[in-house]
Every structure is written in structure tokens, then in C-alpha cells.
């Protein structure tokens, strides 16, 4: 139930708000519907999607798209993010690796110098729908921790590991690697390079499913201040009402 601190929203209500928020930020410059869905997934799976948006706002409000893509070898991409938030280009980046995996059996993209890396979550969910094996790995220099999202065979959602250790890799201090493949072993090899056998996930696919089911049953408690901030952005889409505009409603 709602209280003074939080407001209980349905998933659909939050989805609609996030769509309007992204639409207000980008109009039709990006696929705002899928951006909203990605954020919703994070939120309903307990990964603070709303917080990620709000923390990224100064960057999201800056329209310039400075990223640069290279493909040093077939199906293996490097994207230089120049310190930008991952949200606007996470889907088109993951698309490249997924297309390569579907074409050649393996796809990989290293996204460098970005923040908001948990937004890659949706790409693993998409990989599951396409029967691909997938994982994403990054380390957080500030926290001194390594993060692994690993989509296990036949699962719709990844397991999420957080290791209190640094695993340096081509992703650097603020990048990530996303790999996907038709072959399980290819992805497993990437994951096992940083993840020992005996590590317990921070959250399992089942944990995510349970959190989602709870959200569907009971709604999502959203901090009222965060809700107000999102609405303030979303309301930029609203057009002032005039006599002429009322005629445009059929009066």
C-alpha cells in the first residue's frame, strides 16, 4: 500500500510514466518504448531502474551523441562511450552482438567508458528469448567489485553475481563486455575467467522471478520524490490547453 514516503504503482502505470519520461527526454530520437521497458525490468526485478535514470539525468539531458563504434574482427565490436550513460545506446549496441551471434554463432561487444552498466540487463533477457547463451561482465573501480550477469541455459533471466574483487579486462574501469553465442561453452568460458565454481549469486534468476511476481501481485512502491521527478520530466510533453486545443478534442 502507499504511504507518506512511497506511492504504489502498477507495472503498467510505471511503464507508461517511464515511456513518457524517455519520450520527453528524447522525443523520437531513440526507441523510447524499449528504453522504458528496460528500466521497468530493472525496477520490477529489484535493481533500482528508477534510481539509475535519476542518477543519470544530467547526462541524459545532454543530447550530443559522441559514441564511436569499431569492429576489429568479425562479430566483435568495441564501442567507445566517452563517459556517457549507457541507457540511450545500450539496445543498439547489444543488437550488434546479438546479430553477430545469430549470423556466425558468436557476438561480442566491449562498451568502454560508460556508466549505468546494469542497463545491459535487458539484452540478456532478449538473448534468452532468442535461445542464445549470454553474459555481461564489468568491474566497478569505485566499489572495487566485479559484476557478472550470466544467462544460464533454458532460463529467461540471468543470475547476477557481485564479486568483492577486481577482474581487469578489456572493459577497463568503466566499461563492460557483453557476449552471446549459440554455443553454451563459449559464454561459459568468458564467465569462468572471472567467476569461480563455488560463488553464490547475489541474485538468482529465481530471485528475479519472485520479485517480479510480487510486483505484479502488489504493485511497486515508488519513492514519491522520485515519482515527482519523473513526472516533472514527463510533463514536458504536455501541451497547454487553449480554446483552439479544446476544439482539437472534439468540443
Amino acid at each position: 500500500m502507499s504511504d507518506t514516503e512511497t506511492l504504489n504503482l502498477s507495472l503498467n502505470e510505471l511503464r507508461a510514466l517511464l515511456r513518457r519520461t524517455y519520450e520527453a527526454l528524447y522525443h523520437h530520437g531513440y526507441d523510447f518504448l524499449v528504453m522504458a521497458r528496460s528500466c521497468l525490468w530493472l525496477e520490477v526485478h529489484g535493481l533500482d531502474g528508477i534510481g539509475l535514470i535519476l542518477r543519470s539525468l544530467p547526462d541524459l539531458e545532454t543530447p550530443c551523441r559522441e559514441i564511436m563504434l569499431t569492429e576489429p574482427s568479425l562479430g566483435q565490436f568495441i564501442l567507445e562511450g566517452h563517459g556517457r550513460c549507457l541507457i540511450p545506446f545500450v539496445n543498439v549496441s547489444a543488437d550488434l552482438a546479438i546479430a553477430a551471434a545469430q549470423d556466425t554463432g558468436f557476438g561480442q561487444i566491449d562498451i568502454l567508458n560508460v556508466f549505468g552498466r546494469l542497463n545491459i540487463f535487458a539484452a540478456l533477457k532478449k538473448s534468452a528469448r532468442l535461445n542464445l547463451h549470454a553474459a555481461s561482465i564489468w568491474y566497478d573501480a569505485g566499489e572495487q567489485r566485479t559484476h557478472v550477469l550470466w544467462l544460464q541455459p533454458s532460463k529467461a533471466l540471468p543470475d547476477y553475481y557481485i564479486l568483492n574483487e577486481i577482474h581487469e579486462g578489456p572493459w577497463g574501469e568503466s566499461g563492460l563486455r557483453f557476449v552471446c553465442s549459440e554455443v553454451e561453452k563459449t559464454v561459459t568460458n568468458n564467465v569462468r575467467a572471472v567467476l569461480a565454481d563455488n560463488i553464490v549469486p547475489f541474485k538468482t534468476a529465481k530471485d528475479f522471478t519472485d520479485v517480479y511476481e510480487h510486483a505484479l501481485e502488489n504493485g511497486i512502491a515508488v519513492n514519491r520524490k522520485a515519482y515527482a521527478k519523473l513526472n516533472k520530466i514527463a510533463d514536458r510533453l504536455l501541451v497547454p490547453s487553449t480554446d483552439a486545443s479544446r476544439q482539437g478534442a472534439g468540443e
Binding site: H28, Y30, D31, V34, L69, V92, S93, D95, I98
Partner: peptide
């Protein structure tokens, strides 16, 4: 298509 929508993200939807 992935390459296309990377170049033209406004057309992804």
C-alpha cells in the same frame, strides 16, 4: 538491421 538501427537509432522502433 542491427547496423542500420545503430546508425539510425530513431528508426529502431
Amino acid at each position: 538491421t542491427a547496423r542500420f538501427v545503430y546508425e539510425y537509432p530513431a528508426n529502431r522502433y
